[in-house]
Write a protein that binds this DNA or RNA. Structure first.
Lengths: 375, 375
DNA sequence: TTGTACGCGTTATCAG
DNA sequence: CTGATAACGCGTACAA
């Protein structure tokens, strides 16, 4: 009976070659190599020493049959599917462009480690519940984490391994990777101060409503900004506008009215950027001569959309995706030798939107001031 | 022995409730409901009639134990994993923003139909080979399809169900959804002609190099554009520039030199848009007064990045993701009642970048010309 | 209508 | 070093 099935299988394979979806099993390999099915398993997984001779026979058989071990059988027996879930929320807007990088980076990294990544539309509790109870995934990657994220509790309860991209309010016991907002802001302010600025504001996209309430990045940027200002004895000025160019345009007058002497602005709202620059221009404010702008946690691609091109601290999306997955896999495979928590800096990418303030420029004369080539 | 294990299981559940990852099996449900494991399966899957009485008992037991059928066991027995692979290529640039919509739309649709979507970084043949031979996925969704795509042959050979987002040169035998470039261009040209334009050009991002060689959308847009021009007896003018704002800026002079009398431009290169407008402005050409621009297969979000906001035919990313997945699932589940091939229009979204050409405006006087509110 | 029993393709334990 | 063999959780003929 077994023999009959086997021969049928091999006939089909030899016959047409069109039945590629019918693949060889360990059973087939074992038979062809004249070994037990267990031995095949040992050589495939290197789970037990195998003599060079039999290993050679087995490998030859695998080669001939084009053997690939079946993922489902393996999962059932080993209780590990090698599938990771990427739990994503609504993402109405934030960092739309860089999200693709994040997705694909996470998927590639998973792939490099022999894992697969499934996109999990995180809706209600029920869906999260299914995620943790059907045994399809080994672990979960949580993105767009809120300061107080209910999903974290739920995952902890369900005893599912998970890692965060972002942080909750108290992430001390959790595995996460996040942007190092504190040092990013520090470097950004350094840049401005180095150019001679003392009046530095912050324009952000708000901490969010509804599903995005308590959006971590903005919360942390605000805090870091204020701390930095305080530390340096500078006055802080914060404003908020919606995440679109029109809102940015509208924000320009409000900004100048609220802080007339502003010479530098940290922008934590990439989508408002183009509109903001236009709006300022209309008011006779030119960038960077009258106002320097540094876009935070955005991308060079996005920064290039404005004229002049914005100087930017670009979000490390690829790195976050990579590290997040590796963190999770480390947890699953017991490779506990790496950091459970890590922060990644945004990279400073010079554009043409920052320069010394007019006062300084005038005072020292043009030649003394070296900036990012204000035109 | 079985009884012992079972009681241990139940003790743990009752004891702490912290072991959420240990879930009940059909075995457990069957025991609690005093039925056979098969009966549980029948009621869960509605695969065989079950008397109301026993159904009630089974459902009560499931409720009590919080039963969810194990995805892996099911997959092994049924030979269907209910996992779909989304095969994506390099995507260096094209439509970065809308890709997220596509990804998430595909994932959500899959989820609605009881399927899961795994991101498959399509590298070399070997990776594609693994995809088709490990039995992890039931079907494949191919995106960024090239006119002559080797992956299609490979998938056909391996006998794997698949659907395309996009089309090959001869897609007659394939299942696909794609943008209706022909009608999109027709509508775009209609819009221009309706405003009085007769000199209409096309600026695209090129058909690609390397992995993106023979990029379908541009190929089809070019063809459709030329056909449309011919049909209307208009002269065509085509140009190409790289996909970034700087290239768009640089393209402005070349454009005017190559076609000095141009009054309208179809833009199939969203990333060049902002730079193009700026570049034109520098040359004293204002949009839309001197040159109307209509951005094709882009997004409103992207269009809003320029000043003035571009009028756009927005890519139906969400719809493509949805239909692609449904097409594939239809194939898998044998619901052959829907179209195997379908085209989706881009939606016309008025911005402020198109108006009647100056000649017409002057001739008829301002009041006679109704456009999208040229400022 | 319900139960029995086998098979899906692997892993892992335990002998030899 | 290698081979039997028992799980793993579910679907499904076949039998009752």
């Amino acid at each position: 009976m077994q023999d009959f099935e086997s021969s049928v299988l091999e006939d089909e394979r030899a016959g047409f070659g069109s039945e590629g979806s019918i693949v060889a099993t360990m059973q087939d390999v074992a038979r062809l190599a004249n070994v037990s099915i267990a031995t095949v398993s040992f050589t495939v997984n290197n789970s037990k020493p195998v003599s060079p001779a039999t290993r050679a026979r087995v490998e030859a058989a695998m080669q001939e049959l084009g053997f690939r071990r079946n993922a489902v059988g393996r999962a059932l027996a080993s209780k590990r599917t090698h599938i990771l879930a990427l739990l994503y929320p609504a993402l109405q807007h934030r960092f739309r462009g860089t999200v693709v990088d994040f997705f694909t980076s996470a998927a590639s990294t998973a792939s490099e480690h022999g894992y697969n990544l499934v996109l999990w539309p995180a809706g209600n509790d029920a869906e999260l519940d299914e995620l943790t109870s059907t045994g399809l995934v080994d672990g979960v990657l949580l993105m767009e984490v809120q300061v107080d994220d209910p999903r974290v509790d739920q995952l902890q309860k369900s005893n599912t391994p998970f890692a965060l991209i972002g942080r909750t309010a108290d992430p001390s016991a959790l595995d996460y990777v996040d942007i190092d907002f504190e040092n990013t802001v520090a470097q950004a302010v350094d840049h401005f101060v180095g150019l001679g600025h003392t009046s530095i504001g912050l324009l952000d996209g708000g901490v969010g409503r509804g599903a995005l309430r308590g959006y971590g990045p903005v919360v942390r940027i605000r805090q870091a900004y204020q701390d930095e200002m305080t530390k340096r004895g500078l006055t802080s000025f914060m404003a908020t506008c919606d995440e679109n160019p029109a809102a940015g345009r509208a924000a320009a007058p409000a900004l100048l009215e609220g802080a007339p002497d502003l010479t530098a602005l940290l922008l934590m709202n990439e989508h408002a950027g183009p509109g903001l620059v236009t709006g300022l221009h209309r008011l006779g404010i030119s960038v960077p001569e009258d106002l320097s702008i540094l876009s935070l946690a955005s991308s060079r691609e996005m920064a290039a959309m404005t004229e002049p091109e914005l100087t930017v601290m670009s979000a490390p999306s690829v790195e976050l995706g990579r590290r997040g997955v590796e963190l999770l896999i480390g947890q699953l495979d017991g490779t506990d030798d790496h950091e459970r928590q890590s922060l990644v800096m945004c990279a400073f990418e010079p554009g043409k939107s920052t320069a010394a303030p007019r006062a300084i420029t005038a005072e020292r004369g043009r030649s003394a001031v070296r900036t990012n080539e204000a035109r």
